[in-house]
Design a protein around this nucleic acid. Sequence first.
DNA 1: CTGCACTATTAGGCTATCCTAAATTGGAGC
DNA 2: GCTCCAATTTAGGATAGCCTAATAGTGCAG
Lengths: 228, 228
Amino acid sequence: MSTAAVTEALTRSVEDYLKAIYQLSPEGRPAATSEIAHLLALSPPSVTGMIKRLSEHGLLEHVPYRGVQLTDEGRRAALRMVRRHRLIEAYLVEFLAYSWDTVHEEAERLEHAVSETMIERMAAALGNPSVDPHGDPIPSADGLIHELAYTALSDVPVGETVEIRRVHESQPERLRYIATLGLRPGVQVTVVDRQPFDDLVTIEVGGERQVIGRELGHSLLCAREEGR
Amino acid sequence: MSTAAVTEALTRSVEDYLKAIYQLSPEGRPAATSEIAHLLALSPPSVTGMIKRLSEHGLLEHVPYRGVQLTDEGRRAALRMVRRHRLIEAYLVEFLAYSWDTVHEEAERLEHAVSETMIERMAAALGNPSVDPHGDPIPSADGLIHELAYTALSDVPVGETVEIRRVHESQPERLRYIATLGLRPGVQVTVVDRQPFDDLVTIEVGGERQVIGRELGHSLLCAREEGR
DNA sequence: CTGCACTATTAGGCTATCCTAAATTGGAGC
DNA sequence: GCTCCAATTTAGGATAGCCTAATAGTGCAG
């Protein structure tokens, strides 16, 4: 049953597909061929082909023309990759002086190469952290992930002060920009104004006022009135 | 000319071939197809096929039926892999509690995945070491390697006391055995007897007597009468 | 100087993964 | 209920690597 081990090693490509599908739909809603193709920068026919193979191997369920969903086994493999990726990011930032805008690319390659042993040693060296440098939760070794419900900065009411908990972004340029604004997990931010359209919000952070656009506002996840 | 950068990234396989050829003949003597095949656990025809591709790419010179030699460019790429491998081994032993019999396998995969940046960060964290945990020299970032002339334990005269400097072995079981004998770089050993055949030597190390066979005796490289 | 035992190469195939161009399908809009 | 567009899948092809079986070259023994 679902506890059955993934005996044969998965290829790099397969690991990438599974992780992509998980990221497109952590809740299990079907993911579209074109979304997967876009995320992995591949052509749709290539994705269809791989989907077929993965379905045969029982890693996902495919309803033609409707999309794919991970099976339990596929989900387990995907979460394993997410754990690896996030722990590697955390390790590189903590011990090898990486900044959060450069870790992603390195982790993207290492996640396929590192042994289970090494991952657990890194986790131990870090004190088994529950989140990575972006605030994203790290699945446990047995495949459990604890997603907290945060509010996007774009949805925070005017006048409220919140704490940034998670920066959901992997593009280096954007992360660098976010960093220059002084925004990172743990920082307090007050929403002082909001435009009627385009989800534009004005915030105050570290004594400075900044205008945040739609995309950024949706990437910055905040905790409201915690323990207050 | 020879300073030309290897523009396109090499594949994992290509990197393995180049490293193997370098290891079979660091001095540049031609390496035989069958030796390469044996070292990489591949069939000879596969090796011939790859040799053809690598020659076309200018990474090695092939004289049919006679063997291959690395070109300057091929040698540079090979030394780059050797540097990576040995630095990774050193890093894992120093910071992630690996023992010298388990690092090889991990490094074998990581050497293909790690960025130049990460390699240099690891080197810096280690204080730019000149040798790895087995005592093997680490090529510099610009591709220079400083091989010291050591004497194999099998060739040390009876009665002499030497220091083990390098343990040239990658098989875990053998390394574990060597470790149980108390043999590792830096240890003092006295040769107390020698059999007429099979290069059998009896040594005294840490107050204990041990008999060392031919293969082991050739893997243990020693420094004689240093600074005496 | 010839034949034999290796070693090396060529021939022919397979799998994984990717691509472009050509069908096909599902559902929105009339 | 039919048409048509966009999304998807099928068709057909390429490349990197690897394999086994068959052929060819090398060099030593007689």
